[in-house]
Amino acid sequence: MDVTMSYTTQTVWTWWIAVYLYLGGLGAATLVVTFLTDMYLKNHRALVLWGAFSGIAMLSIGSLMLFIHLLDPLAVLHVINPLVLFRQPHSWIAWGTQFIIWMMWWGLFYALPYLVQSERARRVPLLGAVLRLKVMTRLSNRCCLRFHKTIGWLATINGIGVAVYTGLLLQSFPAVALWHNPGVPLLFTVSAFSTALAYLLLLLNLVIKNEEDYYIKVFYERTDTMLIAGELVILFSFFHYMAAGNESAFRSAQLLWQDMGWLIGFIGLGLIVPFLLELKGVIKGWASRLPIVTASVLVLAGGYLLRHYFMYAGVYAHPW
């Protein structure tokens, strides 16, 4: 067929899906990093509680985004049922939903012992009452503590699953070259962990503020610097892939690489500036917290912009 193509972007999945993808990746990676830190770097109750619960909150808000935009929210029951994986093993949303659900459970179980022990939590009106229940203590001791590492790893696996899934989901839309390539899961995963580290740096710098956590912070900064560097490399290869790719890719490239929001907002302020700030931190260190806090905020904002622009810049080529 000789056809004349028209190129068009989509208005089906807009910012609310970008938020879903963003909070999904961020939330899951936050849990993963928190638990791994807790398991292998330093036992850290505050970090676990903050990380786990904000991670779960992010996952919930993200999922809520998806949920309230469903045409028929009642029918969501079909995907919440774990058996969906037997019926729809090829659907990443099915996997993603299960990852998210189980991630939240494992996250909760992992954090439960810390919560049960937390004096502050026990003083919270309703929550305290629940925590004081015998079942809770029993659950906490007999299950959560006993299998703490196993649960931690289950959470980690699910969390990585969620982060990867956000990319795989886009990859499963074959019409759009920007999405339909193996770089996307990689990019989204790296970005998820980078934003999670930024988020945890914020926590450590602004909320938990514990001098002993210096090493953790340095470790996070270093890792984040590497992740950002990795992200830049992936984006660089994306640029080349798109510029010399098919029409869909080429048109996406035109949209992205001529857009100030993408160039300055995401790449400039969301990646390069924090990279330099953190690099200096890693090499020479900063006198104040401000540069790292700034870098973290920028990384978090950049993380959203990445999803946002990715959703909007996907170009469909229609032969009519």
């Binding site: 989509q10 089906v12 999945w13 998806l66 469903l70 045409l71 028929d72 929210p73 009642l74 029918a75 969501v76 079909h78 995907v79 659907s91 949303i93 989901l169 499963s172 839309f173 074959p174 019409a175 469909y316 229609h318």
Partner: peptide, 21 residues
């Protein structure tokens, strides 16, 4: 009855063949 209306199918379809009700 099964569809929850996530619209992933619309995103996946290269032929713009789906509509929402």
């Amino acid at each position: 009855a099964l569809c929850m209306g996530c619209r992933a199918c619309a995103m996946a379809c290269p032929y713009d063949a789906r509509l929402e009700v």
